[in-house]
Amino acid sequence: MPKITLILDLDGVLITTPMWKADEIDTDGYSKFNKDCINNLNILLSMAEFEIWLSSTRRTVKKLEEFNLIFKNRNIKSSIKGFLPTYDNCKNRKDEVLKFIKETKVSDFLIIDDDKSLNGLELMYKQKLILTSYLKGFDKSKLEEAFSKVR
């Protein structure tokens, strides 16, 4: 069975620190992730085979190996396959995600992100979007929503 491409953001999905506060730092020197959101992500990852592609703007400041170590330190049950490329002509996350989907020709995918520009996706793509709230992240209700889109 082919893997589902999971296009995953961090801020507002796994990192839920309010914007007006500095990130809490974990023992490995990187921002703390919300434990409930990690648990919900692990539940989702146990449902099917996923290939994680990081869409977070944080992808531009660390290497893939560093992010995979961060995921391992936070007990996330799957590693990151890669980063969405940084495209020069993309104005927002919606443009980046669309270009990635079209370039890679993925058909089975799920997007988990809090970026409101994704509301502008065409319906065929928006049906695969789990739009989180910045302070709640990937909570139980978003996990349930993801279940309905993966089944």
Results as ranks from 00 to 15, higher is better:
1 M>V: 07
2 P>E: 07
3 K>D: 03
4 I>W: 10
4 I>D: 01
5 T>Q: 09
6 L>H: 09
9 D>C: 07
10 L>H: 10
12 G>P: 02
13 V>M: 06
13 V>N: 03
13 V>D: 03
16 T>L: 05
16 T>F: 06
16 T>H: 01
19 M>Y: 06
20 W>F: 11
21 K>P: 00
22 A>S: 10
23 D>Q: 13
25 I>D: 00
25 I>F: 00
26 D>M: 04
27 T>W: 05
27 T>R: 02
28 D>Y: 06
28 D>N: 15
29 G>Q: 04
30 Y>N: 06
30 Y>C: 04
31 S>N: 00
31 S>R: 05
32 K>A: 06
35 K>C: 05
36 D>E: 14
37 C>L: 05
40 N>A: 07
40 N>S: 03
42 N>A: 10
42 N>R: 08
42 N>K: 12
43 I>M: 12
43 I>W: 04
46 S>D: 10
47 M>R: 09
47 M>F: 05
51 E>W: 01
51 E>S: 14
54 L>Y: 07
55 S>W: 06
56 S>E: 04
57 T>D: 03
58 R>I: 05
58 R>A: 10
59 R>S: 07
59 R>H: 07
59 R>G: 08
60 T>H: 13
60 T>N: 15
61 V>R: 15
61 V>I: 12
61 V>T: 13
62 K>T: 09
62 K>S: 08
64 L>V: 04
65 E>N: 13
66 E>H: 07
68 N>I: 09
69 L>M: 01
70 I>T: 00
70 I>H: 15
70 I>F: 15
71 F>Q: 02
72 K>C: 10
72 K>Y: 12
75 N>P: 01
76 I>S: 06
76 I>W: 10
77 K>I: 09
78 S>D: 06
78 S>Q: 12
78 S>P: 00
79 S>V: 02
81 K>S: 14
82 G>Q: 01
82 G>K: 00
86 T>P: 01
88 D>M: 08
90 C>G: 03
91 K>D: 14
92 N>G: 10
92 N>M: 11
92 N>T: 11
92 N>K: 13
93 R>I: 03
94 K>G: 04
94 K>E: 14
96 E>Y: 09
97 V>P: 01
99 K>E: 03
101 I>M: 02
104 T>N: 14
106 V>C: 10
106 V>S: 11
107 S>E: 12
107 S>T: 13
110 L>D: 06
110 L>K: 10
112 I>F: 07
118 L>R: 05
118 L>H: 11
119 N>E: 14
119 N>I: 13
121 L>P: 04
123 L>H: 11
128 K>T: 06
130 I>G: 04
130 I>P: 01
132 T>P: 11
132 T>H: 11
133 S>H: 12
133 S>G: 10
134 Y>E: 11
135 L>G: 11
135 L>S: 14
137 G>Y: 11
138 F>G: 04
138 F>Y: 15
140 K>T: 11
140 K>G: 03
141 S>P: 02
141 S>A: 07
145 E>C: 11
147 F>I: 12
150 V>Q: 02
